[in-house]
């Protein structure tokens, strides 16, 4: 479904404001576990994260080991999910796929947060022409369907993990920059920041000690919601044959490889497709839960009011 874009979902966190009181990590986890949907999200994400971490221990076979005599085998005790067109074990490939899909998205997220927070802070704090230029870039990139831009970049650079990573990073920082910029802008004039400035705090101290800590909760919410988007973008590029290249078991690439066997072995496509969908469901549930916990003002009621003001 329109998970590649889900414009509305990704536009919601753009309006996140700083929460007054930041929850402590311990109570945060407890609150998350208290919400049924957030708990489900956390569970799903943890399962896939563990699968990614411990894939070599969990996988019954080498994900790259070819077995020509056992091509397209049905599930059996030896191969719980069957084998693919080259006789490789499907379960092992899906497990190792978690590494490529989740790992790539996680690395991209870390880089993107760093860039986005840096640019957003500068723009929000100093304003002026830099800010205007930045907001123009952000508006253009956020307005346009991102998959088209990913396709254009990877299509021009050529397929492969490195170029996919470049595309993901080149486009995804804008969401963070926009959120952080708005937060910094609103906080610059808030009482505690002005008081600190009057007491002689310099720019750097104001930014790192007073402003940035307040930026953390919204960035965490955005990161969880955006992880889903990145995983889907990665999978979509893999599906087009532009992503991580075979024989590497990335979920989108696996879907692409199994296209030829759609009629004879549909299960080959279902397993990686299911893995992508489940992971993204997990991150979306977790993101929604985090938003409710970290920013009470963005609970269902507040969100409705906010939306009305927007229109």
């Amino acid at each position: 479904m329109a998970a590649e874009l889900s414009a509305e979902r990704h536009s919601v966190p753009l309006e996140i404001e700083a929460a007054e009181g930041v929850a402590r990590p311990g109570s945060l986890l407890r609150q998350l576990l208290g919400d049924r949907l957030a708990r489900t999200g956390l569970l799903i994400v943890s399962v896939f994260a563990l699968a990614a971490l411990f894939a070599p221990l969990l996988a019954p076979h080498d994900p790259l080991a070819i077995d020509p005599l056992n091509r397209l085998a049905d599930p059996s005790r030896l191969h719980p999910l069957g084998t693919d067109q080259l006789g490789r074990d499907t379960l092992s490939r899906v497990l190792f796929g978690a590494r490529w899909s989740l790992g790539t998205a996680a690395v991209a997220t870390v880089v993107v947060i760093a860039i986005g927070v840096f640019v957003g802070t500068l723009a929000g704090y100093y304003g002026g022409r830099l800010d205007a230029l930045l907001m123009w870039v952000v508006d253009v990139l956020l307005a346009f369907p991102s998959l088209i831009l990913y396709l254009a970049i990877v299509g021009t650079l050529g397929p492969g993990l490195r170029n996919v990573m470049i595309a993901l990073i080149a486009l995804s920082w804008v969401a963070y920059a926009r959120v952080v910029r708005g937060l910094v802008l609103s906080m610059r004039e808030r009482g505690f920041v002005r008081a600190s400035r009057l007491l002689g705090a310099g720019d750097r101290r104001l930014m790192f000690r007073h402003i940035l800590p307040n930026v953390v909760p919204p960035v965490v919410i955005l990161a969880s919601l955006q992880m889903g988007g990145l995983i889907i973008a990665l999978a979509a590029l893999g599906f087009f044959g532009l992503g991580v290249q075979p024989p590497t078991p990335e979920w989108g690439t696996m879907v692409n490889e199994s296209r030829l066997f759609l009629q004879t072995a549909p299960a080959l496509m279902i397993w990686p497709g299911l893995a992508i969908s489940l992971t993204v469901i997990g991150f979306n549930l977790l993101g929604d839960g985090l938003r409710d916990v970290l920013d009470p003002r963005l609970g269902p009621a507040a969100r409705r009011g906010r939306r009305r003001r927007r229109t």
């Binding site: 479904m1 889903g228 979509a236 879907v255 759609l262 549909p266 992508i276 993204v280």
Partner: peptide, 23 residues
């Protein structure tokens, strides 16, 4: 709505094909 946000459209397309065309 959650499924719509989470299931990639190519996965949905193949699921529909598997149900209505293949099966």
């Amino acid at each position: 709505a959650l499924l719509g946000d989470s299931v990639p459209s190519f996965v949905l397309a193949y699921l529909l094909i598997i149900v209505f065309s293949v099966t």
